[in-house]
Amino acid sequence: MTQADTGFTETKVEEYYVQEEPFYIPHSDEIELFTAAYNEQIPVLLKGPTGTGKTRFVEHMAWLLSTQSKGTVRKHGKAEGIPLVTVACHEDLTASDLVGRFLIDTDGTRWSDGPLTRAVKAGGICYLDEVVEARKDTTVIIHSLTDHRRTLTIDKLGQMIEAADGFLMVISYNPGYQSATKDLKHSTRQRFVALEFNFPPPDIEKDIIIHESGCDEETAVQLAKLGEKVRNLGDYGLSEGASTRVLIYAGRLIKEGVAARRAAQVAVTWGITDDPQLQRSIDEVVTSIFP
């Protein structure tokens, strides 16, 4: 890791360690399960709607497992632990984006490892966020890494890389909004143990909101209540309930002095739906909750 004078931090993907403890309140036994899976090298699938803390959980686990396994050991003055390589998947993400590609050099071509290859070599956690968004050819690579083989084949180099011990594949997906064609194939999903994520109950969510946004408890209680009420609409036209994230945003806006109703409107109401009818209904809920 290099801390430049420019004010930003530049890190190679495989050298990114979560050093500060990410705030995370467990819903149930997911920490124990993940730890066990990690120790047994069983890939993990995180399911759940957006904004329920999947990414935060992975970060938390990367940190937790680092501190547990390696403690505070530092090599060459650098932090050491389990690197976390996160790849946000998108429609155009191809296998070569994960594995690597040849780049043109002055005298020819030079191979450049993709993030997945780096994670495999470094023995880190590779977290493929929203994996179903990626192209189908990516799953082929995932397969060999997620069964007993734990190998990554790089056709273009004619190489086969065995994953370092610490390597673990973690993928996430949201069963809610993706269409049927974007569903995860059974051959893929049955290589993972699945952890379900859902919105936390109001009192836990309240604590999260307080912690993350720094707003006062009263506001946090109301925001959590708003979240709960809006999620009640899940069956009636809302494809996705208000995530904890948007509630936190609202809390931050309120802390900055934005009027509560307005903050809830821009962060929650308008954020989660474009349907004017639904927006009005949610607005009524907002005005009922916030004075």
Binding site: K229, L233, G237, L278, R280, S281, E284
Partner: peptide, 15 residues
């Protein structure tokens, strides 16, 4: 009606 119904559903969480 639609507006209020959605509102009520949001509050109660039932149909």
């Amino acid at each position: 009606r639609d507006l209020l119904r959605t509102y009520c559903r949001a509050l109660v969480g039932e149909s």
